[in-house]
């Protein structure tokens, strides 16, 4: 069964690239362009992994995680945060919100693919 990944990033080019890369590995990909959009995609669809950027308009990644964790159907869904800084404060906030995995930008698709596979490999 294909695993479904929700990918959240406000950069259209990052979304394009990651969708292609993830789909090639056989994952189902749902895209969202910010936290708000992402939250609307958490509508009961089974999602095995959420990958989200931190800095986004409308709703930032941390807020999104906090909201997502409130939803019973997603409270255990692993969340990988993409961040361009290995910022201790942000990580602390994210950790408190339920983020356990961080990927520091810049990364290349293979790096993220590895992380994804470590978390949701079927």
């Amino acid at each position: 069964m294909a695993k479904t990944i929700l990918f959240v990033d406000d950069s259209a080019s990052v979304r394009q690239v990651m969708k292609t890369a993830l789909a090639r590995e056989g994952y189902e990909v749902i895209l969202a362009e910010d936290g708000k959009d992402a939250l609307s995609k958490l509508n009961g669809t089974k999602i095995h992994l959420i990958i989200s950027d931190v800095n986004m308009p409308n709703m930032d990644g941390i807020t999104f995680v906090k909201e997502a964790k409130k939803l019973p159907a997603y409270k255990f869904t692993p969340i990988v945060m993409l961040t361009t800084e290995s910022n201790a404060a942000k990580m602390a906030e994210g950790k408190a919100a339920g983020v356990k995995a961080w990927i520091v930008k810049p990364f290349q698709p293979p790096q993220l693919m590895a992380a994804v596979a470590q978390l949701v490999m079927a």
Binding site: S13, V14, V17, E85, P106, F107, Q108
Partner: peptide, 19 residues
Amino acid sequence: RAAHTIKGTAGLFGIDYIV
């Protein structure tokens, strides 16, 4: 933010001279 977003995205594209 501008700088690190550019860095992050460039990294994804493997444009090392920008990263």
